[in-house]
Design a protein around this nucleic acid. Structure first.
Lengths: 164, 164
DNA sequence: TTACTTGTTCTGTTTTTACAGAACCAGATA
DNA sequence: TATCTGGTTCTGTAAAAACAGAACAAGTAA
């Protein structure tokens, strides 16, 4: 575990904490991002991050439920290799959107509940609503566009990495 | 404090908790959304939510720093009336985007750090990056569009609320 | 069968968070 | 000046979160 790696794992960890994940899941994401290979065993995670089995077990359970991590097994082996689930990545992104969308629904209810005694405030709530409407409208388009871009065969193999 | 109001305050509170806010700030947002008038004094917040002065003081400090709540004073009075800062609302939204953007920067660094030994994984990281690039590109456009929509004078006064 | 590998689950501890209560303080008022 | 109003800050506490360590379980190998 060299300095730079440890630094990134740390940094990625706090970034994901800010996004609402517990600390260890955040650091596991960091570890799996910088690891070569990008799949690690249970024990490797423990020894790299110096945490207990139980903590790792719970953190991995959390990450699997959140569609962030999955595991694979190699030929016949019972041992699991955990890795970032890049396929389901967009599913994870959607979690934020669910919060947004649930707040949007609440806002609509609130607007209906309110009297007309404070029209300025009501209007600003309506304006907020409009923003979320736009978000709901454009987000699926964005996802769609993204799938188009990453499936373009001519860019598919343009892998750029500085280390040879 | 009637049933329906209390229910919404609760619901809004948990929604904002999921978005990373502490419980009381979340409930204060809920309270200020359903209150008529939409501005309340320090004491009113205390008596409505049945919490301590210190808790409210800290929660309001937190909400002001987050650009969610501001206060106004009426003619000469020393008393502050706290309300949702609907002007700065988009600033609050931007906080999420800052997390996203900081993760995007990390991702770019990680891609540079990695060897070419696992090109498939590297490619999926690059694809993730592309999604964030798109987000960074379209979000400001969305904000811009939103401002255009809410400033259209013909829709400005179309206030629709069910209660007369 | 025993024993080992690969985790999981349970129990307890440490740390952090959220809040209460009281002391405190600054400006307005009497 | 003292006193009241409108908060803030300090100190302590209860509850929750994050984790460690040990016991446990399920499959594999010997």
């Amino acid at each position: 575990m060299n300095e730079e790696r440890a630094h990134y794992i740390q940094k990625i960890g706090v970034t994901f904490e800010k996004m609402g994940l517990p600390p260890l899941p955040g650091r596991i994401i960091g570890l799996l991002l910088v690891s070569e290979p990008p799949h690690l065993t249970f024990e490797e995670i423990i020894s790299e991050l110096q945490v207990s089995k139980s903590a790792v077990s719970n953190a991995l359970k959390y990450l699997e439920m959140s569609s962030i991590v999955e595991y694979i097994t190699f030929t016949g082996g019972r041992k699991r290799y955990f890795r970032l689930s890049t396929q389901k990545w967009s599913k994870f992104l959607e979690r934020d959107r669910e919060n947004i969308s649930s707040f949007y629904k609440i806002l609509q209810d609130v607007i209906k509940m309110r009297s007309n005694d404070f029209p300025e405030f009501n209007q600003s709530l309506i304006n907020m609503c409009k923003f979320y409407e736009m978000l709901e409208e454009y987000y699926p388009i964005l996802i769609q566009k993204w799938h188009e871009i990453i499936n373009e065969p001519n860019t598919q193999n343009k892998i750029q990495s500085s280390n040879p």
